Simulated assay, not measured.
Amino acid sequence: MNAVPAGTATRREAEVADDVVVVVNGDGGAGLSNSVLLLGNPTTVIDTMLLPDMAADIVTALTRRGRAAELVVNTHIHTDHIGGNRLFDGVPVVAHPRTASGMRRMIGEPGLPALLAKVMPDFAERLADWDSVPADPLPPVDIERALPAGTRVLEFTDAHSAADLALWLPASRVLVAGDLCFAGVTPLAVHGRVSRWRAALDRLIALGPDVVVPGHGSPAGIGALRELADYFDRVLAAAHLAHTEQLTAQAVWARFDAGPAAGWLEPGRTLVNIQVALAEIAGKPFEGEHRVQQDQDPSHSR
């Protein structure tokens, strides 16, 4: 039996409602994000994965249905959601103004490929020349007008990233959550604030979705949002304990009870999330990114 090369993932299509197709990217671990196809008018692609060869499966899914992309929306700035933008030449690509501005600064930075290779080692060789096309800035209200009728756009800032968009389809009760939801995968709050992400989850839960499409992991129900909220409650409690007892993030992480999140992929991210939450509680200046060290105990590694 041949071994599967590192960084290889099986992408599959899941039709979660009429005219809503998810291209699920592997197990949702580091570098493996989902894309969503809205087959209304206009035909819309939500996020384009990390690499063009991944995004080729998005094009294949559209072609199989006799469709071509007419609009691309990037939910946020992270490279694993924007790397396939260049496959949609001639198609409008839009994002929140904060996201678009950050993309213009980020894309082409000389040190970016090396940083990406460190964060996503399974794809290190394929990230040596990583590049993308920045989105055009468009306010959320205008993105909503451009999307298929009945789609609502929800805006969140400094939660998972500087700016995140979620799409709510009330007719089918489908929530396209982007990276505001991870399902079966430990989230990463290094570019946001844990407390604001936790509050964002309350807004999403209040919608009462039947289907939640996460940025990473398989489509799920509202339980995925509730489990993520529980996880962040535990992270915030650990950070408060560290602050009150003057303990290190590593000390509280060593005895962290993940509850329903036990067994999720990428468990070492919990240390980072505790460090970010602790920085918030300590009142350290927030500039959109907390630079923290991941000194991981092998017992907490994936």
Rank of each mutant, 00 (worst) to 15 (best):
F256V: 00
A249S: 03
P285H: 13
R269H: 07
S301E: 05
G268D: 08
D230A: 06
A242W: 14
V235M: 03
V272A: 06
R302G: 08
A249Q: 05
W264A: 02
L241P: 06
V276S: 01
V252M: 06
H290D: 15
L241T: 15
Q250H: 10
D257S: 06
A262G: 09
A238I: 00
V276E: 02
A242T: 06
H300M: 01
L241G: 11
L236P: 01
H240W: 13
R291H: 14
E245M: 12
H240R: 14
R269T: 01
A238R: 00
A249P: 02
R302A: 14
W253V: 00
G263L: 08
L228P: 05
G223N: 13
P298F: 11
A239Y: 11
G223S: 13
G259F: 03
S301H: 10
A242Y: 12
P267W: 06
G288T: 04
A251L: 09
D257G: 05
A279Q: 08
V292T: 08
L241I: 13
K284Y: 13
R302Q: 10
A239C: 11
I274C: 01
I274E: 01
T244Y: 14
R226H: 04
D295Q: 08
P285L: 12
A254F: 07
L225C: 11
F286A: 10
H240F: 14
I274P: 00
R291K: 12
A229L: 15
L228F: 12
Q250P: 00
G223A: 15
A239V: 04
L228D: 05
F286P: 04
S301P: 00
